[in-house]
Amino acid sequence: MRIRWIAWLTVAMLALLPLQTMADALLPEAGNLAADGRTAAAHETPILIEIARRGCSYCEKVREDFLKPMVRSGDYRGRIIFRQLHVDAELPLVDFDGRRIAPRDFARRYHVSFTPTVLLLDAKGRLLAKPLVGLTTEDFYGAFLDEAIDKAVARMRRRGV
């Protein structure tokens, strides 16, 4: 009986893996910002990075209620590159200049002290709009996010970077 229960539990967990993988694919973890920067420059597309912490309920809410639905909608395809970055991750990422940097040091560069913080950056890592810090008003967060994205897209295209 115990073996049957373990087998059933294993099958159930394996069945859920594609859902988790698909969810992660919607908002991938930042890993190589130099490569993202080249893509951003080629397409004149800003990079949106949600700076988060593991276990942060507000970070999860921003991701699940705003960012992932934006990606799923398809309305932002070709308009913005979506990434997330967990400041408490151990693995370094490749910075815009090609050097390795710890996630907490990357966040510190942009004076991020609260999570979630959403950054909108150009191909070289320069801010294109004022960062969105925290989740103050859920009713207006989507509008604030869209406004910041519109500003970032306009600035990116004006700069031609």
Rank of each mutant, 00 (worst) to 15 (best):
M1A: 15
M1G: 15
R4D: 10
R4A: 14
R4H: 09
W5L: 15
I6C: 08
L9N: 06
V11R: 05
A12R: 05
M13H: 01
M13T: 13
L14S: 10
L19K: 04
L19V: 12
M22I: 02
D24P: 06
A25R: 12
A25M: 03
A25W: 06
E29W: 12
E29H: 14
A30V: 04
A30Y: 12
G31I: 09
L33I: 08
L33D: 08
A34R: 14
D36F: 07
G37T: 09
G37H: 10
R38C: 00
R38H: 12
R38F: 04
A40I: 01
A41F: 01
A42P: 00
H43L: 03
T45M: 15
T45K: 05
P46F: 10
P46V: 03
P46L: 05
I47V: 15
L48I: 09
L48V: 10
I49Q: 04
I49P: 11
I49D: 03
I49Y: 05
I49W: 03
I49K: 06
E50Q: 15
E50H: 06
I51G: 01
A52F: 04
A52D: 00
R53A: 11
G55M: 09
C56V: 02
Y58D: 11
C59A: 07
E60I: 13
R63P: 05
F66R: 00
F66K: 00
M70S: 05
V71Y: 03
R72Q: 12
S73T: 02
S73G: 02
S73K: 06
G74S: 03
D75T: 00
D75R: 14
D75S: 09
R77F: 00
R79V: 05
I80Y: 00
F82W: 14
Q84V: 01
Q84S: 13
V87W: 01
V87P: 02
D88S: 01
E90R: 13
L91C: 02
P92V: 05
L93Y: 06
L93D: 05
L93R: 01
V94C: 04
F96D: 01
D97T: 03
D97C: 08
G98W: 10
R99S: 15
R100K: 13
R100M: 13
I101P: 09
R104N: 08
F106V: 08
R108L: 12
R108F: 07
R109I: 02
R109H: 10
R109E: 02
Y110E: 00
T115W: 01
T117A: 07
T117G: 08
L119P: 08
D122F: 06
A123L: 01
R126E: 05
L127D: 07
A129W: 09
A129L: 12
K130L: 12
L132A: 11
L135H: 07
T136F: 04
T137K: 11
T137N: 13
A143Q: 15
A143R: 14
A143Y: 15
F144L: 10
L145K: 13
D146T: 09
E147L: 08
E147S: 14
E147A: 12
A148E: 04
I149C: 02
D150S: 10
K151L: 14
K151M: 11
A152S: 12
A154W: 06
A154G: 00
A154Y: 04
A154N: 01
R155S: 10
M156G: 04
M156P: 00
R157V: 06
R157N: 06
R158C: 02
R158H: 03
R159M: 13
R159D: 14
R159K: 12
G160V: 06
G160Y: 00
